[in-house]
Design a protein around this nucleic acid. Sequence first.
DNA 1: CCTTGAGCTTCTAGTCACTGGAAGCTCTAT
DNA 2: ATAGAGCTTCCAGTGACTAGAAGCTCAAGG
Lengths: 128, 128
Amino acid sequence: MNIGEVADRSGLPPKTIRYYEDIGLVCPSRSANGYRAFRESDLHKLTFLGRARTLGFSIEDCRTLLGLYEDESRESAQVKAVAQEHLSAIDDKIRQLQDMRATLSELVASCHGDDRPDCPILQDLAGG
Amino acid sequence: MNIGEVADRSGLPPKTIRYYEDIGLVCPSRSANGYRAFRESDLHKLTFLGRARTLGFSIEDCRTLLGLYEDESRESAQVKAVAQEHLSAIDDKIRQLQDMRATLSELVASCHGDDRPDCPILQDLAGG
DNA sequence: CCTTGAGCTTCTAGTCACTGGAAGCTCTAT
DNA sequence: ATAGAGCTTCCAGTGACTAGAAGCTCAAGG
């Protein structure tokens, strides 16, 4: 398989696939013409990576997960630990965004938003 | 005021303040010894920026907001528009994170997390 | 056989908002 | 005189790509 087909089938852009090779997440072989030659197993890995990335795992987490995926003697506890840590990081981010959202929506609601210059949003930002 | 004092009073690290000067958000004058010399108005700007950044506004938004802050003939509608757009971007992010969270917490819950290798998390990532 | 266009290659540089570190100057206190 | 803190500049790195340029390869049509 050339990179284009793998891109179509995995849903990842060719640029991203090349990048994943650069950082050692996949290592396709090469055809005589220099083109990357992907096996089915490479496609599987890339699909795995795509899914893990949409769940927000970092590249380093993905590397770990891929390692566990390929390690038949893994313990599911290891996988769960990675996922749980990521889950709590997501929870932190959500909380942070909700805090922002709360303040910001109050400010937006309190601003009349017309042609006059006085504005509670700017007042808040200015510290007051 | 030297950068250290401004850093303490604004809550921003010196590095960040220098960076904000680099990109033209503040332009402190200079003392004879080459040190940056901040006025009260610079401190105000930096405090404004710090607050806007904690509300998640991008640097470019901050630049716009700072411009509006200093423009006495601004219309509050302009400020409100920037804030509203940012608010809806935050809402998008929250939704995205909540989607991730939902999937991930199901997966985590379904993984027994012991010393056996079989794992629904990996199964999901592998496209199963 | 030639050309056209799509697809592939590598490489560099840009994104965003800082942050770390090195090398070196200035100031204050002892 | 010296030690140490604080200031200066500049370069490089972060994460995860992404844009774009220059150039090679391949398949189809005339």
